[in-house]
Design a protein around this nucleic acid. Structure first.
Lengths: 213, 213
DNA sequence: ATATTTTTCGACCATCGGTCAAGTAAATTT
DNA sequence: AAATTTACTTGACCGATGGTCGAAAAATAT
């Protein structure tokens, strides 16, 4: 099939258009016609490649996180590196992937706008957690085998960490002040250290800084 | 103001209508006219009581969680009861409040519908966590003073617990199998016990069962 | 060249959230 | 009780949206 390449090109063209528009306005205010115009194609063609407007967003999110998540997963295989280092790198990837997409303009104290793009953030959460959980689980599992981490359920631990971090790094799902966010993340690190029998300070350099402004 | 009663009646009439409709279809497919019709009033009147469609939803959520959250908060003041008991009761309230609203029809494996009502669940999360955090913080704080709990940052701990529990109890934000959910919640309890210097098994009776089917 | 399939397109449709002028009912003033 | 002001109701109306469709144009096959 020679059209696969061409199809994929158009496909990505549409995603590019949406991504561009997404940087200056929120989703609900972006019309399909607008996406088509930006992509330089007719509106009808959009629906040749995507079944609905929401599907375009889904595809864009998946494309956006494909690369960072891929590299994050590779970390799980690098058994020669300390689990903590790998964990830090993985969370770093998690963090950069979040800031990549959460650039929405929070201009006014518009309470309605925050709700409009709620499901965008929700999708980000679901995507990141589900994709990263296996990798982090593997890392923790190896840390347990090494005797560096003490905990019964690596998968549960991975999920807990990812949930809290993903939610707190994306400050829109549960809006907090910078101080609050920092406190919660610091609390998580402290809880992890004490809960997994790791020396205090071992995880402190994970230094997660939430997206601000 | 004698109109407060009448106004409130109409106000609640609209919320009743939305709540009713919400049991058979998802929000995005419920029109304002439909709400008005169900409430037996003109469409224009809706906008006399609410500034937007989203505001109706907000109000409904707030009304739905008002009572359970109120009783949950009162638990914080009952200093004569053990912090763990109060914590369990609070989480119980959290749980019932979730099942009260998460009765959406999950008929088919329709991936699109699940995403449509994403922000409904997102609002639930934000509401529950922000409302319950102060109460749980207070309980933990008292447990620390009693010497029953050992942890530096009660507020952080409260938020972490609420985030994980709220997300896992509402199985739509991050869909998991029952086994996974149970594992994560059990992992959280275990992490809490070890992380806060509490004897193993102390928190086990929190026994959180997620909403299923 | 002809036939067939794939892709493009924008006019068109139903519907939506929200506005508004006009009207009615209720309270308040005189 | 009449007049006036205020509180409330309403459905026609508006601009805009997501999505459809048949027709045309490109591409491909025969």
């Amino acid at each position: 099939m020679p059209d696969t390449k061409k199809t994929e090109k158009k496909y990505n063209l549409i995603l590019d258009a949406l991504q561009q528009l997404l940087e200056e306005k929120k989703i609900q205010n972006i019309s399909v016609s607008e996406i088509a115009h930006k992509a330089g194609i007719g509106k009808g063609s959009i629906y040749y490649y995507f079944p609905s407007k929401g599907a375009i967003l889904d595809a864009l999110i998946e494309r956006s996180y494909k690369q960072p998540l891929l590299t994050a997963k590779k970390l799980a295989a690098q058994t020669e590196v300390s689990p903590f280092t790998r964990m830090a790198m993985l969370l770093q990837a998690c963090q950069t992937s979040s800031t990549a997409f959460i650039k929405q303009n929070n201009s006014s104290a518009d309470n309605a706008s925050a709700q409009d793009l709620a499901f965008l953030h929700q999708k980000y959460l679901a995507h990141v957690v589900s994709e990263l959980k296996p990798a982090l689980t593997e890392i923790i599992k190896q840390g347990i085998e090494n005797g560096e981490i003490h905990f019964d359920s690596p998968a549960a631990l991975a999920e807990i960490v990812l949930i809290v971090i993903a939610i707190k790094l994306d400050n829109t799902l549960l809006p907090s002040t910078p101080t609050e966010t920092a406190e919660t993340l610091q609390g998580l690190i402290s809880l992890l250290e004490k809960g997994t029998g790791v020396a205090s300070g071992t995880l402190s350099y994970l230094s997660l800084t939430p997206y601000m402004k």
